[in-house]
Design a protein around this nucleic acid. Sequence first.
RNA 1: GGCUCCGUAGCUUAAUGGAUAGAGCAUCUGACUACGGAUCAGAAGGUUAGAGGUUCGAGUCCUCUCGGAGUCACCA
Length: 617
Amino acid sequence: MTIIETLQNAVVRAVEQLYGETFEPGKVQINTTPAEFTGDYTVVIFPFVKIAKKAPDAAGAEIGGFLQENVPEVQGFNTIKGFLNLELGTAYWQHFLQTALSDTGFGRQPRNGRKVMVEYSSPNTNKPLHLGHVRNCLLGWSCSRILDAAGYDVVKTQIVNDRGVAICKSMLAWQKFAEGKTPGSTGIKGDHFVGDYYVLFENKTKEEYESWQQTPAAKALYAEKHKPDQPEKDFFKEYKNKWFNDHSRLGAEVRDMLLRWEAGDPDTVALWQQMNNWVYAGFDETYAKLGVAFDKLYYESDTYLLGKDIVDDGLQKGAFFRKEDGSVWVDLTDAGYDQKVVLRADGTSVYITQDLGTARMRYHDFNCEKMVYVVADEQNYHFIVLFEVLKRLGEPYADGLHHLSYGLVELPTGRMKTREGTVVDADDLIDEVVNLAWENARERDTELTDVDPAGRAEDIRRIGLGALKFYMTKVNPRKKMIFNPEESVDLQGQTGPYIQYSHVRINGLMQRVEKEGVDLAPAKNYTAYRPEEKELLKALHEYPNTVLAAAREYDPSHIANYCYNLAKSYHRFWHELSIFNADSAQAKAFRLVLSRAVGQALKSGMELLGIEMPERM
RNA sequence: GGCUCCGUAGCUUAAUGGAUAGAGCAUCUGACUACGGAUCAGAAGGUUAGAGGUUCGAGUCCUCUCGGAGUCACCA
């Protein structure tokens, strides 16, 4: 039982005895006491005022008195304006510190035997990963780690969008123009290699379209179809999709290729596998650099026909209905949404059919009671519909579905656009932040460069990536993010390196403890806490609660902000108090023990964000 | 237009319905010849977009208005 639960229960007993009313323990509000008041935890008294028929402070004093008498941990209290501030005794804090230190899993909940699947990244195989995938991957990875720490068994997965017209474009361009070149022969990373042919296809198509616009047929079409005052340029911009479907030679070839792929034509399938394998090799490299991984991969080429049995199921249960043309629909108008098609008239699947089928398949594969989809907020509506439909079908996991929706990453110049070349490539970005960390390190210190070059390089990599990862996880996922390249590699202030630095400081202390064989036992006799010590201790104490809150809300930014606050308290503590030169052996031992526990929590918290700690910086 | 999300200091942001809205960046002023200054202390900067309402108490909940984004495909 946590201290908060202990206090809640005790308050319920107090109210029962004093005023003869029962209350639900969960309804008792207990907050950490703000720094400007004395106390550790604060009970909000207002809800009891009516029952007590007393002024807030009088009721608070009575409840406080009861708690002090009946709860051993409560040593003192004061009431101010309806808030009952409770002070916990040093025995409690000493015990807590010892537990936090010896418990290697401090902040981790015991296994709860429940399984959750987290889907993230889910790239297309026709181009490399970009900045948006980086946010997605960091959120997905972090969310997985947090759920794991909260006691769940987590299955990390991605669904690879490996089929469709996009990859066929790359394939066709490669076939026509590559003259047998490969990533191996050119030295280009596989995903970039394939992406280049996708771009080439788009460029060739553009050329074809522009020359087509000069033909008499095109001119006649414009003359006949354009809206009043519409310039030729605008007309043809609008017409592009229709042109691609009706007139383009490349368009015809690419559709032909897709048909051959669907028919299982061996040559086409072989080429498709070849090119996707190049891409996967590239992705693996990027994922490794980012420090993320997956337990199970699903491929859209395997899943894109799924879901038809669910459609039958839905028809039988009356959740779906069939229109005259044979298409199948779900009517969500009673819930304030639209009617959505779930199966085309020709019997083929649409996007949501596939997702319905995939959800059921995953449930059968892993028996997950929860599934988290890390997908950008563009698809909010899709997931509302998907979850609603699964609920109406009575799927057993329907209540455990969560869309971890995050805002798009934009540049200061606006939204990223492939066509305008404003996409920030993931590999470039990672290299860039590490380079900047190098530059910065060289300016700082020359002493560290001559020892252990390999360890030094690894530390710098951790610092650069730490800056990037913290920058991207510290904001609430829901918020649209303006990616400012300069701020993302800041190393001062509310940043990853700020936190890493506090850990490095602690490391330094611990090495000295080791070297000098400092006796830490006197720590338990130290009780006269200084404000900086108490603040730090209280901050440390909040770690397990923070992990639980982050898991409950699927929100890594709670962890990021917590780590920052803890590091901030530590820096202040460090600056205000002498550790090795403390007044007494007890104070010295206590501060060292506290430092060690804080170091462990910081390391553990940052690990939840996928951030590693450097040895030195 | 319907639906969803967002709007907090110049900028980036925090705050299970609780106390004087908390940080960082940028600006200005300071800090021990001491455990590492990627640090610390301080100043300045806020009508939480606006107006009503609910509540003992609202940045947070409700209604309306304004501004921004997304979505409203038999695309994925």
